[in-house]
Write a protein that binds this DNA or RNA. Structure first.
Lengths: 127, 127
DNA sequence: TTGAAAAATGAGAATGATTATCTTAATTGT
DNA sequence: ACAATTAAGATAATCATTCTCATTTTTCAA
């Protein structure tokens, strides 16, 4: 057990893939079944710590609670405006942008975010 | 005066370019000089209404207050992790992505967001 | 012009996500 | 085993934003 029981179990849960791009609140309810005494602050703390350590990615979408993703592979997200589900998608981004930015304005890029919002198949049909 | 005095003045202020990608709070303080009795709720209400009407764009960045942009031209944003300033940049996105998404998963794209975070010239040097 | 209906305002309460604080419990190294 | 460190759990605090509601402003038909 490298870290605390709580941090370990949270990471294990995240890596299990049982939850689909969960928010901290969703992780909290799932963790309650594993460690019934866990507190919400511990969940936030550890999700953020694990993200800082590079084991998770923290995702933000406008007007919604942040999500956490165990998938570290380079990919992007599409969020459904109907049901709120997040879908992964792959696409190679033209990274000449960073270079141009650096050249033109001296801006040094730390991270790039590409995301899409719309309606998933299920939500699009009945809209 | 097409709309209410407040909405008109907010739009005029935004279009003046005096404020740089301001948050609602920043618009509020600037508006106080124009209409001293204006309330913060009115500012939020009208910024959002104007965005819904397509006269402004509402921008979201992780962990920060939303910003509003009068520039409707197709462009993207780079946010400085140091000073919080938002910089515009242009880039043509490969819109074949939407098509692929639609084909593969039946996801219908409403909007695409591409944004970059990092350090601006000023903040990069003293980091 | 009047006056009722509709729309928008301003003040402040409410909400929701997230972080901060603080006391206690667990872990570590000696 | 014990002092020092680290993390936990509970809860208060924060911050942006939205909601509510009483009041004011606007609209528009009679």
């Amino acid at each position: 057990m490298k870290y605390s029981k709580q941090k370990d179990e949270i990471l294990k849960l995240m890596r299990s893939g049982r939850l689909d791009h969960p928010s901290a609140a969703e992780v909290f309810v799932a963790m309650k079944e594993i460690l019934p005494d866990i507190g919400i602050a511990t969940v936030y703390r550890n999700l953020n710590a694990l993200s800082d350590m590079g084991f998770l990615k923290r995702l933000s979408f406008a007007g919604e609670a942040d999500r956490y993703d165990f998938n570290l592979a380079d990919h992007h997200h599409a969020i459904c405006l109907g049901c709120g589900r997040v879908f992964d998608f792959d696409m190679k981004l033209d990274n000449s942008v960073e270079k141009k930015l650096a050249e033109k304005s001296g801006f040094s890029v730390v991270s790039v975010k590409y995301s899409v919002s719309g309606y998933c198949k299920k939500c699009a049909c009945c809209k």
